[in-house]
Every structure is written in C-alpha cells, then in structure tokens.
Amino acid sequence: MDDIRKKAKELLENKTVQVVIGYGKGSGEEARAIFVRDAAKTDQLIFDETCLQNLAVYILKHEVKHLGKIAIVATSSVLRSIMILASEQQLKDGDLVVLGITSDGKYIDLPNFKAIEDYLATLNVSITDKEKELLKMIDAMTMEERWAWWQNEFSKCFKCYACRSACPMCYCPKCTTDSNQPQWIPVASHQLGNMEWHLMRAMHLAGRCINCGECAKACPMDIPLNLLTYKMIDEMNANFGVTVGMKPDAVFALSTFKNEDKENFIR
C-alpha cells in the first residue's frame, strides 16, 4: 500500500495527474471511493479486504473527468473494465494512469494497455465455484420454477437504477430505458416494466460484463442481478469461447459474425 501512496503522491506532485481515484475509509465496514487531488492527502488511500467497489465506474463520469487526468487504483475488476472501455473506444492508451494492485495489496506497474493485458493473462478470472453453484441451482429449475423465481426477485425492484449506475459498462449517455420515442420499456416499476428492464440490461451486458458483481451489490433490495450476468458469461464461454475484458482491442462476440459461430440457437 505504501507503494501506491508514494506513487500517487508523485503523480500529483509532478502534475502528471490531477486526481487519484482510490479507496479510503468508509463510514461503515466497507471502504469507499475517494478522489485525492492533493499530494498531501495521499495517506488517506487504503487497501484491504474491505475495498470492494469497482472504481472503474468513475472513469467516464463527467464530474470526475472534469477534474483532469486520472490515476486509478486498479484491482483486476478495474483492469478488466478498462479493457472493455478501451475495446469500445471509450479510452485510449495513456488516457489514464493505472495503479495496479494485487488482491493482497501489492503495487504492480502497468504502464500501458499491453502490460495490463499481459498481467490479466496471468490471472484466473473464471467464475468461482460458488457462482457455478448458483448457476446450477437456477439451471436445475424447470422453466416454470425459474420464471416464478425471477418474478419474485423482480417484484422487489423499484427502478432506482442503482444496478445501472454502479456498472462501469453502463455508460450510455442515454439509456434505452430512458428513451421515450419510442418507449421501448415501460417506465413504471411493475412486473412487466421491471422484467423488461432487467432482461434488456442483461442482454446489453452479455459479452461485456466482466463479473465484478457491482449491480447485485448496489441493489438496495438485494436482487441477485449478478446471476443474470454470470449466466451470460457462462453462455459466452460456452458458445464463443470468449472471456471478456482480457484485452484492449477485443471484438464483441454478439456484434460480430464469424463463419464458425454456432447456429444452435436456430430451432
């Protein structure tokens, strides 16, 4: 952690960046995002097991960008998010300074996208056994049971859109759900409106979600939205052999056609 603080201090002192996005002490058990703009305050940066948020959500935030060039304390979730943002032309190499950090808090020097890509290749980013278990539980349900299960979960939703807001991949300036000409998705948070919203979001994240789990964690009603996105990751792996968020110039499976693409969806 001292390395990160030192590096952050240096970057702010020599004005390479104007803000360091990192973790600081929160009001409760979990750390919170902090935005250090003063080299003297870099000792507020912390890193431990309470630092969970995927900070990449702030990279494209208008108000944060406005502060100037960004350095970001980057866990593997942040790094993978950066790879997606780069692949989607939202970030160029050198747009930000990446302060890589291992899960046990060691600083890793990642000067460019290539270094990030090489580092990510050394990590195991497959979904965890616990996540696999959850998927199994859903898969074991009959169609009717599954429908009922999700209806129950979606019935808790009140459309606060915390799932969308917490997601680094949900950066569209105008979300499909906010479009009213035509009104694709009902605004009201009733059964249909909730279901259409969550299915639309899951589909939009298929092949883009890096499984950081922010959507589920953000949900004040504890809807396990990550199960939808886990499932998508599983499907992407099975159908296209793709692990998303591993390189800065990825081509998205669902927006590309290849001759060898499976056609098993045609029935």
Binding site: R32, A33, I34, F35, V57, Y58, K61, E63, V64, K159, C160, Y161, A162, R164, S165, A166, A218, P220
Partner: peptide, 8 residues
C-alpha cells in the same frame, strides 16, 4: 464525487 446518481 463518489455519488453515482442512482435513486436508491
């Protein structure tokens, strides 16, 4: 700065 603009 850390507010993500949701309605929770």
């Amino acid at each position: 700065l850390r507010c993500i603009g949701c309605g929770a």
